[in-house]
Design a protein around this nucleic acid. Structure first.
Length: 485
DNA sequence: AGTTGCGGGTCTC
DNA sequence: GAGACCCGCAACT
């Protein structure tokens, strides 16, 4: 009997085709009568098995969201890969959006060493590789075996570290860096001029939108009773939000906008800081997010995870990279409520208290964990992200009204342009013609009639998605994608 | 330059 | 002997 058969499979859930059968990757004979296959899982975790179709491109490539390197097991039938962990800032500094730096370790040893010599783009501290120790102290291992028309996958171990960037995200970032390098130089003087121009433009646009908003409000006042009579009161939303013009940075807090490409001290324009970058596009773009943490692991304090390893096998006691607090044995309390994380940024820290105006919305919003069960239990340091009822949704409405009315097009949705990157116009060149139509995307959330209207540039697709058209949203239930926003 | 797969070799248990 | 790990090589992107 194989290990799997000996171990009993009572605990096996039937959530995957692979788990319905009793097999182990080392078995001489694997299940042959599989008529169903599992959809590809990018972020496998735990002791799981899947059976993929041999036609599955991702399975053929032995892809994984985790950074897995090939490990020689001296068995050419079975491909074994072990997890490299994640590269984080040694100081565990918080990025302005509250997230942590979680880079994907380079697979190549030399490239990884080179990578670790680089500095944190946020605080210039050294980078640190957190090795995976999720399989009895050893890295989590993935096994791949092609047998007949199926590709058998087995994972052993539970990752004890945050997710790195997925491969597609890393590639997207690299390609954006490549584009930036190949673009014409961007002089500080020109940058200053453009900033000033943008300043004026933003102010004009704000007034413009404010007027539109007032018009819309008056219109709603006039037509509201008629319109709302068609809508269930429970599904109505308020258009009156005190913080509605938040996507006009000039009218927000003057705190500097973190720019990963600006680590050398360029004075950023306060105008470059959007209330929430994600408002402006379907996905966070590495055009300006650069080394920001993986969006697949967003807005998190993963390093506070109680599961987080403190390298107990070493003599030194390692502090939590985020809380700077030593682990407390036998206590699961805390890391979230302990001292505020060290941060080089003065930006809003969602772990402490949300700004006024958010409270009620957050109070009324479904808990973050509801839709993101993967993190809800395992990574208790998560805090609510952008929820359907959040101000950004309301901001989106404001943006949308301008578009709907067909007034002169401007680019409030364009991401802030960091120095050194192609100008707004060049950015817009990529999207304006095709994506900035007057189409209004109507989303239904939680069964409501219309909770928000969004008008977004076409989401930036990752290379993987472009390559094979595979929709990762239909993958692992605990996979957290940009699209969840 | 980096990824991926392969395989020889060493070390530890 | 099994498993982890290091290293180099080649093909590929």
């Amino acid at each position: 009997l194989s290990k799997s058969q000996q171990g009993g499979r009572g605990a096996d859930c039937v959530c995957s085709v692979g788990m319905k059968f009793t097999w182990d990757i080392n078995d001489p004979k694997l299940p042959q009568d599989t008529k169903q296959f599992d959809p590809f899982q990018e972020w496998t975790d735990g002791y799981v098995r899947f059976i993929y179709s041999a036609e599955d491109k991702n399975a053929q490539r032995h892809l994984s969201g985790w950074a897995m390197r090939n490990t020689n097991n001296h068995n050419c039938q079975i491909l074994k890969k072990s997890c490299l962990g994640v590269v984080v800032c040694s100081r565990g500094c918080a990025l302005p959006d509250g997230s942590r730096l979680q880079l994907r370790p380079a697979i190549c040893d030399k490239a990884r060493q080179k990578q670790q010599k680089k500095l944190c783009p946020s605080c210039n501290a050294t980078l640190e590789l957190l090795p995976c120790r999720g399989h009895s102290g050893y890295p989590v291992t993935n096994f791949w075996r092609v047998d007949g028309k199926a590709i058998f996958f087995q994972a052993k171990g539970v990752h004890d570290h945050p997710r790195p960037e997925s491969k597609s995200e890393t590639e997207a970032r690299r390609s954006s860096v490549k584009r930036r390098v190949s673009s014409p130089p961007f002089t500080p003087k020109r940058r200053l001029i453009e900033t000033q121009v943008n300043n004026n433009k933003h102010q004009q646009l704000f007034i413009h939108d404010l007027l539109l908003f007032i018009c819309l409000f008056i219109l709603l006042q006039a037509l509201g009773p008629t319109l709302l009579s068609c809508v269930d009161p429970s599904d109505r939303i308020s258009f009156i939000e005190p913080n509605f013009p938040q996507h006009y940075p000039a009218f927000q807090s003057p705190e500097p906008y973190y720019n990963p490409h600006n680590a050398l001290g360029d004075a950023p324009s306060a105008l470059q800081k959007p209330a929430n970058p994600r408002l402006y596009m379907g996905r966070p773009s590495y055009e300006f997010q650069g080394y920001l943490t993986s969006p697949s692991y967003p807005m998190t304090s993963d390093l506070c995870d109680p599961r987080f390893r403190f390298e107990s096998n070493k003599s030194k006691t390692r502090l939590c990279s985020v809380c700077r607090v030593a682990p407390v044995l036998g206590s699961s309390s805390s890391s979230t409520s302990s001292s505020a994380p060290l941060s080089s940024s003065a930006s809003f820290d969602p772990q402490t208290k949300p700004p006024a105006g958010w409270k009620d919305l957050l109070k009324n919003s479904a808990p973050y964990s509801d839709n993101h069960h993967y993190y809800s239990t395992e990574y208790p340091c998560r805090y609510p992200s952008n929820t359907p009822g959040s101000p950004t949704a309301l901001q989106t409405i404001i943006t949308t009204t301008t578009k709907v009315t067909g007034l002169p097009t401007y680019q409030p949705c364009a991401p802030p342009k960091p120095p050194g990157l192609p100008s707004c116009s060049s950015l817009m060149d990529d999207t304006s013609s095709s994506s900035y139509s007057t189409e209004v995307k109507v989303m239904e959330e939680s069964g409501g009639v219309i909770k928000s209207l969004s008008f977004q540039p076409e989401p930036l697709q990752t290379k993987t998605e472009r390559a094979d058209g595979y929709d990762y949203r239909y993958t692992y239930p605990n996979t957290y994608r940009y699209d969840d926003y």
